[in-house]
Every structure is written in C-alpha cells, then in structure tokens.
Computed example of a mutant assay.
Amino acid sequence: MPKLIAGLGNPGARYAATRHNVGWMLLDAFARKHGVSIDRSGFQGIYGEMRWGPDAEKVLLLKPLTYMNLSGRSVAEAARFFRIAPADILVLYDDLDLEVGRLRLRTKGSAGGHNGVKSIIAELGTAEFPRLRIGIGRPAPGWQVVDWVLAPFGPEDAAAVAGVLPRAVEAVECFLTDGILMAMNRYNA
C-alpha cells in the first residue's frame, strides 16, 4: 500500500525558517537522508517519490503550496490520485502546546486549533490519520499567536528544533516500517 508523508508549511523565502514551517523542515531532513528530491509539481504542491522496505512500497513526500490554511486541498488531491487511505498518511506539523523541540505522534485526533490540520480533516472527511507534531512552544509574553508562528526561531529554540529533527526522521522511518503504534511506543517516551 502506498504511503503519503505530508509536511505542512508556507511557501516562499519569507516563511522558510519560521515556526509554522517545522513540518517542511522535517520533511526536508527525511528527504535529504534518503536522497529524495522534492521538486516535482502537482497536487497543489511539490513532491518527491521513493520506495520503502522489502516490498518497495511507494512513498510520496508532499509539501502543499496552498499556504497553511488550505493544506487539506493538496493532501486530499494526492491521496485520491494515489488511492492512499487516511491511515497511511502521516502529517508533519508544528504544535504550540508542546515544548520547543519535543515530538509527539498520534493515530488521530482533533485539529487542536491548527488550521492546516483543520483543513486536512475537512478535505479528507475524517480526523483518523496519523500525525507527528513538533513542539514550537507557546508565544512569549506580548506576542500574538499568528505573529509567533510566522516568526523565525530564536537561536536557542532553533538549536532545540535542530536537535530533535534526527529523532523525528527516525520516527517517520519507524512509521513506514512498523506502523504508527510502534512509532508512538518508541518515540513518544
């Protein structure tokens, strides 16, 4: 069965190093490790393809270019085209409710206020898809949420995120090899 790994973020140099683009950062780290270029246009995004495991299953690595709030359009279009079930889609994204540099996997759940995930739930018609969230922490005093997520990481937070990315890449690999439950057991500790 094919799988889809979707990293959420916003297109353009202005957003490249922002907190909201941590999903793209993780997808890029995974692609680099496995020698995959995410450079093909389609599905309202850019994507790359690879084969995984002894059965050489197809894995699609997708970056929606719809801006965060419409991410579901891209994810659903790719899932329909490749006939990928929601349970075989792993969504990578930022989470305000996790400390900076923490990661958390889930099998399903609500959007938790994340507009990109809200869009995916609406477009897929279900909240039953796996996710890997990377903590970006709550806004510092005086910050609005929108300004916080669209701002670059400070040096300390950037180091924390850089430190967790290799572990997050391993969690994606575990999802592909052993499934979401095993990945949760190993990487949610």
Rank of each mutant, 00 (worst) to 15 (best):
G113P: 15
T18A: 05
M25F: 11
S119E: 04
Y15T: 02
R131C: 01
E77R: 13
E173A: 05
G109W: 11
A189G: 15
G72L: 05
M1S: 09
R32G: 08
G23Q: 09
A189K: 15
A168I: 12
R80F: 04
M25R: 15
E173H: 10
G116N: 07
G101R: 13
V172S: 01
G101I: 01
Y67R: 14
A127P: 12
L176H: 11
L62R: 12
T177L: 09
F43D: 01
A160M: 14
E57H: 08
N21L: 04
A158T: 06
S119D: 02
D97I: 06
L176Q: 01
A87V: 02
R186G: 01
A56T: 07
P152S: 10
L70N: 15
D157L: 05
K108F: 06
G116I: 00
G163M: 13
F82Q: 05
G12K: 03
S41M: 02
V100P: 11
P155H: 07
G179M: 08
S74V: 08
L27D: 11
A16Y: 06
M25W: 14
D147C: 11
D55W: 10
K33V: 07
G35F: 02
A189M: 12
R32Q: 15
G42T: 04
F153T: 03
V145A: 15
L70I: 01
P139W: 14
K58P: 00
E57D: 12
L4Q: 03
A6S: 14
F30S: 06
M25D: 09
L61K: 10
W148G: 04
G135C: 04
R106P: 08
G112A: 06
A76L: 05
A127T: 10
E128H: 04
H114T: 14
M50G: 05
E99R: 11
G9K: 08
V91W: 11
G179P: 04
V36I: 13
G53N: 04
F129I: 01
K118M: 03
V59D: 08
T107R: 15
P2R: 03
T126A: 03
S119N: 04
F175C: 00
G101Q: 10
Y93V: 06
A85Y: 09
Y187D: 02
E57L: 00
R186A: 07
A6F: 09
K3G: 04
W148L: 11
R19S: 08
V22G: 05
D147N: 15
P86E: 02
L92G: 02
E170F: 10
I134Q: 07
A140I: 00
T18H: 11
F175A: 01
D95S: 09
D39L: 08
F129T: 01
L98P: 05
A151E: 12
